[in-house]
Design a protein around this nucleic acid. Structure first.
Lengths: 344, 344
DNA sequence: CTGAAAGCGCTTACAG
DNA sequence: CTGAAAGCGCTTACAG
């Protein structure tokens, strides 16, 4: 065993060096400021802190967790970490967690119910204080279940039922795209709607369709097609939309990667994005602006969503009121949606 | 405090139910198979296991870690988790870790020396058994330092010095691209070389240049430009390459995202990838095949690299011999590099 | 095959 | 302001 030896000193070592009891050292080093105050004179406290620095003291989190029954550990579930959207959300979670002295770990559920259960069970066996789910399904049976077991958790990116959630205002984001397409004069439009179980796709689609309905345009169901949230899924969905006889002149993909797939599908049919067919995506991923044909997209505050979800969970853990939050999206118009409908 | 109460039984509860000592329960439930064998009769063992199942026993990892001084925790450092390459490598690490009953957590270092130190220190204070670095810098001063402190670690994706590492054979990958360009007849070529401190960029570039040299073509230094590993970086680098009077007819970007940026730069100049200028990337990310102009790229086994790195670290922790591994890349030719040099 | 005991490094109620 | 003690849930050398 390549062991690393005694890298960190213990409270006891410091107590012996400073000639005080370990309980005093504990209160000075790891207690609340008030605890530290009343635990030792300024002089003693200072001496303890110096010994701690000299001996490279770091509290042993396993010992503390065992004693306090608080692990300062948060489990995070996402569909796939290699999805940039979730990776960015997780970065937000992790940054906020670090600020609050919490540790997080993340696992993929691949949007599979069995994996969600299994990973949650695993997190619980690791004694997490709480969980953040980035993979909620709109039906929410699983979540109701574990809420019933008093497991503290919040949702991020996707909402479900009345569980506390931090999301983008996806409904509003969908409306923004509709507004934009309407201004350009498009009335024959299509939607690449994402997974039917994800609130993101559902709300973005609903917002879009509602805004069109308000403008007096009913988008037929045949022009709303579900898809995976990736380029291959977007390509397949776009192929279906473009094959219909009355081809849409504008397509809203509820995800940037799906939009990139749609761009490819257009090209295969000899159609030019932003000329023959307008395309808009969602999330404004860093790639959107850098594509050969820059992609119109709805900016969503992915990093901030993650950070706020972590802070919402902290409130849940503290027993404070924890209301869901909906962050504001913003439309970013680029070359992929510059065209009015062709004069066909 | 929204506490979750007693979710899991303890050894003691099981011992009382089964009418045996907790040490026996421990050996049966958590010991090695041999331990379990000699710790109790088949009958007693069976009874203990039934009680464990009935009471939903899960060993408390904090208690076990405190006692054994082994946390089964691995810290992982990456430049950015929102970089798809690293996210995929991490998925490989995490999958392998789960198979071995280890927990991992991941942190961004943003390729900054100060953050590398700080995050490593944080991981150590969490009492990880070892570390995996996906953010090694070729100079390796920091790594030499912590190797000197006997911290067990391995590298993944990027190599440095003689530290055990699991990488793609990047040199060979660079050669594959050169071979391909040479077959098409390109002699005026450019390289978007990535960060100067990353072995990935260095080795891919060196392999490419060496193969050209062997073919009797010396690529001038002015046609090798460094870049960030993202689309914006690739676009900036491509702009520089295309501005020179003797424009390259083929460009190798050592990263798919940089290649996508280069695609955009070409288009801005009215050049068609795969017609006027050939483009190749690296990693064969899922997007490459789905782009409007599908991208030629070198496939690297990102997920497998991660899994193997975890297993290499396990060997290091066990004190077994741990040799570096270089996984084999493969060229995937697509439309972005179909052209011979223009007859200018 | 089984048990009793010690101890990992903390925290915290109690006492002074 | 400071200390002594108990105990969180495990593992493991020792003894029988």
């Amino acid at each position: 065993m390549a062991r690393t030896g005694q890298r960190h000193a213990t409270l006891r070592a410091i107590a012996q060096s400073a000639g005080v009891d370990v309980s005093t050292v504990s209160r000075v080093l790891n207690g609340s400021p008030e605890d530290a105050q009343r635990a030792a004179s300024r002089q003693t406290a200072e001496e303890i802190r110096q010994w701690a620095a000299r001996l490279n003291y770091r509290p042993n989190p396993h010992a503390a967790s065992l004693r306090t029954r608080r692990s300062n550990l948060i489990g995070v579930l996402v569909p796939r970490l290699s999805d940039l959207v979730l990776a960015t959300v997780y970065e937000g979670i992790e940054d906020a967690a670090a600020r609050h002295g919490m540790t997080t770990f993340v696992m993929n559920s691949r949007d599979q119910a069995a994996e969600q259960r299994e990973r949650t069970e695993l997190a619980l066996s690791r004694r997490v204080d709480g969980l953040i789910f980035g993979d909620a399904h709109i039906d929410g049976a699983f979540l109701d279940d574990i809420a019933g077991q008093q497991v503290p958790f919040v949702l991020v990116n996707r909402r479900a039922g009345d569980h506390p959630a931090v999301t983008c205002d996806d409904y509003e984001g969908g409306r923004l795209v509709a507004e934009h397409f309407l201004e350009l004069g498009h009335t024959r439009v299509g939607v690449i709607a994402g997974e039917p179980f994800a609130s993101t796709g559902i709300d973005r689609t609903t917002g879009f369709l509602d805004r069109y309905r308000e403008a007096g345009v009913d988008v037929p169901a045949s022009r709303v097609v579900h898809s995976h949230f990736d380029a291959a899924g977007g390509r397949a969905a776009a192929d279906r939309l473009l094959r219909s006889r009355a081809r849409p002149t504008a397509i809203f993909a509820v995800n940037d990667f799906a939009a990139i797939g749609a761009l490819g599908a257009l090209r295969d049919q000899g159609l030019r994005p932003g000329h023959d067919v307008a395309i808009a995506g969602y999330n404004d991923t860093p790639l959107a602006a850098e594509l050969p044909i820059p992609l119109t997209s709805v900016r969503s505050p992915m990093h901030e969503m993650g950070a706020r979800a972590l802070e919402l969970l902290l409130r849940v853990l503290a027993g404070e009121p924890a209301a869901s939050e909906r962050l504001t999206p913003a439309l970013v118009v680029r070359a992929s949606s510059e065209n009015a409908p062709a004069a066909t």
